[in-house]
Write a protein that binds this DNA or RNA. Sequence first.
DNA 1: ACCTTCGCGCAATATTTTTGCATGCCTAGT
DNA 2: ACTAGGCATGCAAAAATATTGCGCGAAGGT
Lengths: 160, 160
Amino acid sequence: MPSPSYVLDQLDYLLLSLVQHDARRPLHELGDEVGLSPSAVQRRLNRLRQRGVIRSEVAVVEPRSVGADLMAVVLVALIDDDAEHHAAFRELMRAEPAVQQCYTIMGQWDYVVVLLASDIAENRRLSARLFVAPGTVRRYETLPAFEVVKAGLTVPLPGS
Amino acid sequence: MPSPSYVLDQLDYLLLSLVQHDARRPLHELGDEVGLSPSAVQRRLNRLRQRGVIRSEVAVVEPRSVGADLMAVVLVALIDDDAEHHAAFRELMRAEPAVQQCYTIMGQWDYVVVLLASDIAENRRLSARLFVAPGTVRRYETLPAFEVVKAGLTVPLPGS
DNA sequence: ACCTTCGCGCAATATTTTTGCATGCCTAGT
DNA sequence: ACTAGGCATGCAAAAATATTGCGCGAAGGT
């Protein structure tokens, strides 16, 4: 489902590198930078959207501005490798707004979860609800974030 | 610098919850959903931008579409807590496009780094360059991601 | 050599954003 | 109670931007 690998040329990469930092720039401005007319730029962007290369365009909200002052990285090990348990846990993660990111990883832990909360108390409540109550988690370790050095979804692009 | 805490009302939260999922919806559409005229919506969004509540608007690129097939979470411990070392390491992380995210954390590790690479070989090259060559890292542990269960920058919003 | 395909620029059109202005609603001060 | 100021709103005009139709030329295949 991601995308069956398509052929993107240098111009596509250039455009992606621009819009992944600022999605609000008008087409003629992007066109000036890459040497294309506005409509050509638009057709390329639409194609990238349609093919799923551009997954979405979103506004990035500063967490601290909306009371999410505590970010934490949580390492999680499930009770066992039962497919049911995994499915249930993943569903829980996807459904929970406080879970910003969740990856299945290899190694001694099963998941890495990035959790946003207003404070320690709420973090504890969330942990209880997400990791303890369901009973599918054997062990979890919370690593509170001290500082966000870098946070983004930007992707390294070939030739740039 | 994030933002000195401002007063956002329910409408602001509503708008944020909409645009943090889709930043391309026209003002009149947002207005219909929250019960405001297009210009009122726009003024609110601009205020949120100016105050830094909306940090940016970006296109989210699907990593696998551009050859970034291997994501890994890397736990890093520095040689020591020297401020110099920390500053250097953080600068390195910020400058490196393959580093998607980087947090300072509390506990036995100093940093969590989310690293994007095309494959294992490139991951090794990156690790060598970022964690070994500089000589500021005592120990690091790479946890390759098996599957991305959830990836986003969306923030939990009060009252929604 | 001819045809087909594809992406381009241009120009017309449609949509969206931006701005100026008048109004109504709070709050605070008299 | 009344008034003045600040503030956010809706509306409408204007500006900017996005979208679409069309013809052209290059690349590749027959």
